[in-house]
């Protein structure tokens, strides 16, 4: 124990000083030296031994019973020492795992990257934050040759790495679909078959797919069991739920999806989200969906990106900065 030598002298002098004065200063010194011990991974039995030696040096005539008692204490510390070392090793392994996952998360970001497109007359805001390191939510923008904009929002039931792996598959299936099939109901029908074939039955994926047609100011959409979004009617200053029926992806290979459409007017908004938004919790209480709308309404005068950022910050704080589920919120605002 080479590292113990300078500390040993220090310990002895602190102990001596303390026995003479019982002052706080020596105790503060003891605290500092403990930090050094922990940093150098000194097991508790070594510290007890240090104490034994210091006492023997300071008081050569220590009573026999006291010396025996200290040896007894030392013996009881051995198993603590092993537990301490084990803890140390497990902690190292944990940090290795964490950095491996960080690499994977990084890779996922690259794989699933999507850029928010610039569409005349449509203000878009997006925020997507994973609860843990890897995101089980997914969103994607596709601009078609006809100028239409496709927006996918999906959520794997479950979190973390399995969910994230699943999402990579969804993304590549979507990429491989031919352009002309980019209608919401066709896309969901195709993805449904991919998920049914490739994902084990215990895993469910929900998706909302919307297609915005700038020329008509129209939005078409279909949902595969996804958390309903909201439509904001500017003229009536009113939110309503976007109702769209459809089975979760991967359950029945022959499912057909219904397609809905709606014309957007100036100032109207479409809000797409995952259940990480609507199932925010304050303490043990799930928030009500009216509360989500209240918060959205509070920031609705802002630009779409500012708006989603502010809403996210609000809920992040509400949940003490610890998300329980991946959080994705997309806002489309029709400007003209």
């Amino acid at each position: 124990m080479e590292t113990l030598k300078p500390d040993a002298a220090n310990y002895q002098s602190l102990l001596k000083h303390y026995i003479a004065t019982q002052d706080e200063h020596s105790l503060y010194g003891a605290e500092q030296i403990t930090k050094q011990f922990i940093k150098n991974n000194i097991p508790p039995e070594e510290i007890v031994n240090l104490h034994i030696q210091a006492m023997a040096a300071l008081y050569p005539d220590l009573p026999e019973y006291f010396r025996h008692s200290m040896k007894f204490l030392l013996e009881t510390m051995i198993s603590y020492g092993i537990a301490h070392q084990e803890y140390h090793t497990l902690r190292e392994q944990q940090s290795e795992l964490k950095s491996e996952i960080a690499v994977a998360a990084n890779m996922q970001d690259t794989l699933l990257a999507t850029t928010k497109p610039a569409i005349d007359g449509l203000d878009i805001g997006v925020v997507s934050v994973p609860a843990h390191q890897m995101n089980g939510d997914y969103h994607h923008f596709v601009t078609g040759e006809d100028g239409s904009l496709g927006i996918a929002v999906a959520d794997v039931i479950g979190k973390g790495i399995p969910a994230a792996l699943c999402m990579s598959m969804i993304k590549y299936s979507m990429d491989s679909l031919p352009e002309r099939t980019m209608r919401p109901q066709t896309i969901l029908k195709n993805l449904n078959r991919v998920v049914e074939r490739n994902v084990e039955s215990s895993m469910f994926i929900t998706m909302f797919y919307a297609q915005y047609l700038p020329a008509d100011g129209k939005i078409r959409y279909s949902s595969a069991g996804h958390e309903p979004g909201f439509y904001y009617n500017a003229r009536e200053n009113r939110f309503e739920e976007i109702k769209a029926k459809g089975l979760v992806l991967g359950v029945d290979p022959d499912t057909d999806y219904r397609q809905y459409e709606r014309v957007l007017h100036q100032g109207d908004m479409v809000i797409l989200l995952t259940d990480g938004v609507t199932e925010c919790r304050q303490g043990d209480r799930f928030i009500e969906s009216e509360e989500v709308l209240d918060v959205i309404a509070r920031f609705s005068h802002l630009q779409a990106q500012d708006m989603v950022d502010k809403v996210y910050k609000h809920f992040e704080r509400l949940q003490n900065f610890r998300l329980r589920d991946d959080f994705t919120l997309i806002v489309l605002k029709k400007e003209v």
Binding site: E45, E46, N49, I52, K71, L74, E75, M77, I78, S79
Partner: peptide
């Protein structure tokens, strides 16, 4: 020494 004796016993 004492500490190692205790470790060996454990």
């Amino acid at each position: 020494g004492t500490v190692d004796q205790a470790r060996i016993a454990t």
